[in-house]
């Protein structure tokens, strides 16, 4: 009944569609932020429930988290520089380079974080030891999982840049990846201030 024409060129509605997606994704991020807020509240409730096991003062130190912070802040900088390239919409390889550097920093962060968690497990301070450690592992782990997903997303976007090129849709996805990445940075700053600093400097 209706004749369907194959669309020959990008739709004129595409810019407004992409604006909708960015708003939608922003709302999703707010929802995600509530999850972190609740995990922080959970950590606050659980922080002194050590059940005779090791406490934050005994377990946490600041050197590794400091390195992690530096890596993550650098990755936010490189992501910011990458955003200049996708917004100009022309240059592909520098963009991939900067995205790649972001991922390398993210990878370094994850490596250090996993090392720290492994270290805790070796000290018999795993998440099933006490309420405090459950809350610590889940809060830090949820952030780490987010970073991990962000890295997979970033790798995927690099593939997409190579296979599909930098069109408006891909640029909009990168924009959303950028917001996601910066948000994780903000959450990490709160983790440092609410978990590591009070733990290591009581």
């Amino acid at each position: 009944m209706t004749d369907i024409i194959r669309s020959p060129r990008p739709s004129p509605e595409l810019p407004s569609r992409l604006a909708e997606r960015e708003l939608g994704f922003w709302l999703f991020l707010m929802s995600d932020l509530v999850i972190f807020a609740l995990l922080f509240a959970t950590y606050g409730v659980m922080a002194d429930r050590v059940a005779g096991g090791p406490s934050a003062e005994e377990l946490l130190e600041l050197r590794r988290p400091l390195l992690e912070t530096l890596l993550l802040l650098t990755s936010t900088l490189t992501m910011g520089i990458a955003s200049l390239f996708w917004q100009s919409g022309k240059v592909r390889y520098p963009l991939i380079l900067w995205l790649g550097m972001t991922l390398v920093c993210g990878g370094g962060f994850l490596y250090l974080e996993l090392q720290e968690l492994r270290h805790l497990l070796e000290q018999d301070a795993g998440p099933s030891r006490s309420g405090f450690l459950s809350a610590f592992f889940v809060l830090v782990g949820t952030h780490g999982l987010h970073v991990c997903l962000g890295m997979l997303w970033g790798l995927f976007m690099i593939c997409q840049l190579l296979l599909r090129g930098l069109d408006a849709e891909v640029a909009s996805r990168l924009q959303r990846l950028g917001s996601y990445w910066h948000l994780l940075d903000v959450v990490w700053i709160v983790i440092i201030s609410a978990v590591y600093l009070p733990g290591a400097m009581p």
């Binding site: 959970t42 409730v45 659980m46 429930r49 050590v50 059940a51 096991g53 998440p127 099933s128 030891r129 006490s130 309420g131 405090f132 459950s134 809350a135 592992f137 889940v138």
Partner: peptide, 11 residues
């Protein structure tokens, strides 16, 4: 884990 258990610091 021990978020809501009776023992080991759950609440």
């Amino acid at each position: 884990m021990h978020f809501f258990t009776n023992d080991l610091g759950g609440n």
